[in-house]
Design a protein around this nucleic acid. Structure first.
Length: 226
DNA sequence: GCGACAG
DNA sequence: ATCTTGTCGC
């Protein structure tokens, strides 16, 4: 698919300013009805090696269709700073997306959507950059708090609230007894619609299958480098 | 000053 | 994310 160049900010000040600008372009409405082709994005990295990103094209009815990879040399990587993950990982994701035979209708990203200090987690950043609907699925919380207790039963969810009390996503129990996932809209999708979309993905273990497979592929690709 | 802190 | 030993549980 076609991918616009991704500007690299000089430092955290510039990165923060860019986040504030792009956050204004995030659209928090839209349904994903009828959208069946998604790209699941995950990355893997080891010191002294390039960052490996995987974009796994997945069809809701046909399953996995294609695995594309993107590499960024360690020397070229933005440092990891909580709140600035997209500047580190997005360039590798975009390389992987370039290698897809067709554009996905939805991006499913390992990380936050709008549940972020400035409203622009990596899922939102990629969604705005590519003008695609996107959803963030994170394994840990970065920003916000749960509205109440989250039941142990698979399928239960409670809203994620910003410090001001605005809903920014959900804590979601994908399987009974597992730690919750944190689902937040990235771009061009509503809060409830984002959760509904994730809920209808096949989930054998904690992570929805598309993301779990992307994670496995990224790990394999990293191990295969040497 | 203290705690929190995606991947 | 990775590193890292044993350990608990399905």
């Amino acid at each position: 698919m076609e991918v616009p160049p991704f500007p690299k900010p000089e430092g955290l000040e510039a990165a923060m300013a860019l986040q504030r600008t792009l956050a204004q372009r995030v659209i928090l409405s839209g349904s994903l009805e009828g959208k069946k082709r998604l790209a699941a994005l995950d990355a893997s990295h080891k010191r002294g090696k390039p960052l490996v990103a995987v974009a796994l094209l997945y069809h809701l009815e046909k399953g996995p269709l294609f695995v594309a990879k993107g590499l960024v040399p360690e020397e070229a990587l933005f440092p990891y700073v909580p709140g600035f993950l997209s500047f580190r990982e997005a360039p590798a994701y975009l390389e992987a997306l370039k290698a897809l035979p067709e554009a996905p209708e939805v991006l499913l990203v390992d990380g936050q959507g709008i549940a972020h200090p400035r409203g622009l987690g990596i899922a939102s950043h990629l969604g705005v950059h590519l003008d695609l609907p996107s959803i963030g699925v994170a394994k840990r919380l970065l920003f916000g708090r749960l509205e109440g207790p989250l039941p142990q039963e698979a399928g239960s969810a409670v809203r994620l609230l910003s410090p001001e009390g605005r809903p920014i996503g959900y804590a979601y129990r994908s399987r009974t007894g597992v730690k919750p996932l944190y689902v937040s809209p990235g771009h061009r999708v509503g809060l409830e619609e984002a959760l509904a979309f994730v809920k209808r993905l096949p989930t054998r273990f904690r992570l929805p299958e598309p993301l779990r497979l992307a994670h496995l592929e990224a790990g394999r690709a990293l191990a295969a480098l040497d």
